[in-house]
């Protein structure tokens, strides 16, 4: 654990600010859920999933970047971490695609 790296760390206040933002984003997510229940039929089907997924992606990245302080680490660790994330995402999208077909035609 190198002290030189620790120096760059945000202060507790910054963490609290980030947590507040995360909380607000969660609030948005929940609001979107109820909004969809209310007016979902008037909008194209992809709007709410896309909005929700974007919000969760932002939260995801904030936690990774600040709480897991990946922003302040050597870039190598980001790559290590993203290999798994990207691989999982792409493999399972392909799997969903080919299996989705089974649902459609089967």
């Amino acid at each position: 654990m190198s002290q030189a790296v620790e120096v760059h760390h945000p202060k507790p206040k910054d963490y609290i600010r980030i947590a507040v933002v995360l909380g607000i984003l969660t609030g948005f997510e929940i609001a979107l859920f109820y909004l969809e229940s209310a007016v979902g039929d008037d909008l194209p089907g992809w709007v709410f999933p896309v909005a929700l997924l974007s919000l969760s992606a932002i939260k995801f990245l904030m936690v990774v970047a600040y709480f897991m302080h990946l922003r302040y680490e050597k870039p190598m660790l980001s790559r290590v971490f993203s290999i798994g994330a990207v691989l999982a995402l792409s493999l399972f999208l392909i799997l969903l695609a080919i299996s989705g077909q089974i649902v459609v035609f089967g």
Binding site: A97, I98, Q101, I102, F105, G106
Partner: peptide
């Protein structure tokens, strides 16, 4: 030869 779509 399993149950996967032609495109796949």
């Amino acid at each position: 030869s399993s149950d996967i779509p032609t495109v796949a």
